[in-house]
Amino acid sequence: MRGIFLVARRDFAAYVNTIWGWVILALALLLDGILFNVLGMKGNALYSSEVLKQFFYLSGGVTLAVGVFITMRLFAEERQTGTMVLLEASPLSDAQLVAGKYLSAMMFIVLFQGLSLYMPAMIFVNGKVSYEEIAVGYLGMTVLASAGVAIGTWASSISRNQILALVVGAVVVLFFIACWMISRKSDAPFKELFSYMAFYDKQYAPFQEGKINTEGLAYFGSVTFAFLLLATQSLSARRWE
């Protein structure tokens, strides 16, 4: 565990000790705020719970995008700068390396989520929502982002450069988002399969309404585990080349 936290701490420091980490945070918060203001609070007579649902709907997308964006550097940058050999020559296992990298990105996501708290807090000015609803929404957003971060980690593990990692990660995440659309055009049994796989419509929607979706927790957990496992296998395969 010590090795995992060591890698996570260094990578998290690499995010926040450079101007780019804060630029990404600022841009993501700006985008999140604009979307919330323009789309989330449109109209005059919205229930507070409706505003909160809109916030989690929009913020979930921004968080997912941030997750894919920040993970592109995890392994691809190490390869580009030649520092990957430090990790590969260390006594840490490939699974520990992947876990450390994933954890660092999740720490950054949690920081972003913490900084976005002012938006749901603003609802209390003219409305009323429960803390539980907010907590459940953030839980859903965290597991959604976790799946995106895991996909980005895998994409970075198989890519030689960061741009390629970003493209691969974004395409896979977009596929999972678009599954609801694919399900509408499919026949059984693929209709049910794609509907189940849809990140937003099926699995994330209940969290936006303040309902803990255990099926969604299991699903996002499974996607996270599967892609982290793929990332580990990708690193291990390089030793056997």
Partner: peptide
């Protein structure tokens, strides 16, 4: 790997 120290041609440095 904990018993080995390795310096490639291009030093791996942060």
């Amino acid at each position: 790997r904990s018993r080995i120290g390795y310096l490639p041609e291009d030093p791996p440095l942060y």
